[in-house]
Design a protein around this nucleic acid. Structure first.
Length: 490
RNA sequence: GGGCGGAUAGCUCAAUGGUAGAGCAGUGGCCUUUUAAGCCAUUGGUUCUGGGUUCGAGUCCCAGUCCGCCUACCA
């Protein structure tokens, strides 16, 4: 085994490529087709007998994250899907040739090892390596071992590097996955059925948002990516699948922000013979199940240190009461638009004066009230203009039988007693259509004319729920590959 | 779309308008229980791109690219 001495030792890639060629020319394959991982780092540690000095033989595998080479013996740490485990390589255990090979390994290389476990003098469970193999050579260096990767652009574009080097990022995405499986378990246990509806649609319905446009070649017509799940799931109610849900991606061709990614994951749930009150129980039960099964606590610490208490009953507050409380004006809803605009101006809330009266009020809600709703709050009795798909309240026809669940200063889940009167539904759509909000979906109305059972329905923004439950500040922290401009250098 | 901020070694970061540095990583050596291991030596730069001001620009000015934050759009 002779190394090429002409290589530039400052070129990290060239140095590693040279090592790789040296191995290959010595007949060693640095990229194995397989490697037995009999135990993960956590499984191995769990096998260690309480109070003992020595443990059983384990086979673990993972990526080299730390190397502490001390002459004729070394400690290293490898990372696998469960975390980190320390390995001890000793020349007298594995022989001089193997030890020399070990010393050539680089941070980032993936190895498999076998050996009995022991405890170091500081009590750390460690594998005493008897045999090992390099199973995949890393040709590029890892990010800085202490600070990890912080350059946000690289974190998003090369998320794998973020996951390798930042523990908290690993925690967040594992938690996200567990939250979603917990939601499925919860809904399945409540006899809901998971369905899949079209993402490619001729018309974007169920919400008012600008869709992404595409073209369906075989049908020779323009198509869009869905902006909501709602209208197809309600067709399921008509079809007799009276408890359905879908967890899927929605696409909205709009701006990006700390709370918005153009593709985002929605859960929508529909339960026939229920209503928005039933949805309250469902969402609270679901979130508290996640607290129990995934988080092990119902107190969430936000990135700014504030505690959110998800336990017990949740506050209920009527939209109008919140507005009156904030504006300190009991007659707010009898004021003219001009008076409301004057209030906004005085309060520093930017509003387009062309907006409808109810939109001016809703601006006050979104800008001034919603951000203050940190503790879970069901906002009820929302003005009818704000949603064309919900039932109108029987006592007060200016409001809807709906709630918007706000936690962490964000809207987490809106829920309705779903509109099932096709005549009223058409009228509501037509009123909206005047404001060029959404096109009337005649197929949907036809379905409803066949009779849709009374039902409660709810949409849960999964990304925002994960933001809340993991305590991170931005939606980009909970989406593996957030939307970004293509990298020209790539 | 608008405002503000950022971009320097593979990574994390320094550098009054005056010779571009440190730590980690790398390379060579020492070290048989380390914990961001330690010690000695050492390689590594189109300072995002393009213009301009200046005797002299990483630093000042203009334009652009990308990223972040705020804002706007967003039921």
């Amino acid at each position: 085994m002779s190394q090429n001495n002409d290589i530039d030792t400052s070129d990290l890639y060239a140095v590693r490529l040279n090592k790789l060629e040296t191995m290959r020319s010595a007949g060693f394959d640095p990229f194995r087709a397989n490697c037995e991982q009999a135990h993960t780092s956590e499984q191995a540690k769990a096998l260690f007998p309480e109070g003992a000095e020595e443990g059983p033989v384990v086979k673990v595998a993972g990526r080299l994250k730390f190397i502490r080479l001390m002459g004729k013996a070394s400690f290293v740490k490898i990372l696998d899907r469960d975390g980190i485990i320390q390995l001890y390589f000793k020349r007298d255990e594995i022989g001089e040739e193997a030890y020399d090979f070990f010393k050539k390994l680089d941070l980032g290389d993936i190895i498999g090892v076998e050996g009995p476990m022991f405890k170091t003098k500081t009590g750390e469970i460690t594998v005493r390596v008897k045999a090992f193999t390099l199973v995949s050579k890393a040709l590029r260096p890892l990010p800085e071992k202490f600070h990890g990767l912080t350059d946000s652009e690289q974190v998003y574009r090369q998320r794998y590097l973020d996951l390798i080097s930042n523990d908290d990022s690993r925690r967040v995405f594992k938690t996200r996955s567990r939250i979603i499986s917990c939601i499925r378990r919860y809904l399945d246990a409540h006899e809901f059925m998971e369905v899949e509806t079209p993402i490619l649609q001729a018309e974007a319905g169920g919400a008012a948002a600008r869709p992404f446009e595409t073209y369906f070649n075989a049908l020779d017509c323009p198509f869009v990516l869905r902006i909501a799940l709602e209208l197809y799931l309600k067709r399921m109610l008509v079809g007799g699948f009276d408890r359905v849900y879908e967890i899927g991606r929605n696409f909205r061709n709009e701006g990006l922000s700390r709370r918005h990614n153009p593709e985002f994951t929605m859960l929508e749930v529909y339960q026939a013979y229920s209503d928005f009150r039933g949805m309250m129980k469902l969402i609270r039960g679901m979130v508290q199940a996640i607290c129990d099964d995934v988080l092990g606590t119902d107190k969430i610490t936000r990135y700014d240190g504030e505690i959110i208490d998800l336990g017990g009953e949740w506050r209920e507050a009527a939209y109008k009461d919140l507005i009156i409380e904030y504006t300190k004006d009991p007659d707010w809803f009898f004021r003219s638009k001009a008076e409301k605009l004057a209030f906004c101006e005085k309060d520093g809330i930017e509003v387009d004066p062309e907006r409808e009266d109810f939109e001016v009020t809703n601006n006050v809600f979104e800008k001034r009230i919603e951000p203050t709703l940190i503790q879970p709050t069901f906002v009820t009795h929302i003005p009818r203009e704000l949603c064309p798909l919900a039932k109108i309240n029987q006592e007060d026809d200016s409001v809807l039988d709906v709630f918007e669940l706000c936690i962490n200063g964000q809207e987490i889940a809106p829920a309705y007693s779903e509109q099932n009167d096709p005549i009223v539904q058409r009228k509501m759509f037509e009123q909206q259509a005047g404001e060029e909000v959404q096109k009337i979906d005649d197929d949907f109305l036809t379905a409803m004319e066949h009779g849709m059972p009374p039902a409660g329905g709810m949409g849960v923004g999964i990304d925002r729920l994960v933001i809340l439950l993991t305590g991170v500040p931005s939606i980009r922290d909970v989406i593996l590959f957030p939307a970004m401009r293509p990298d020209k250098d790539a």
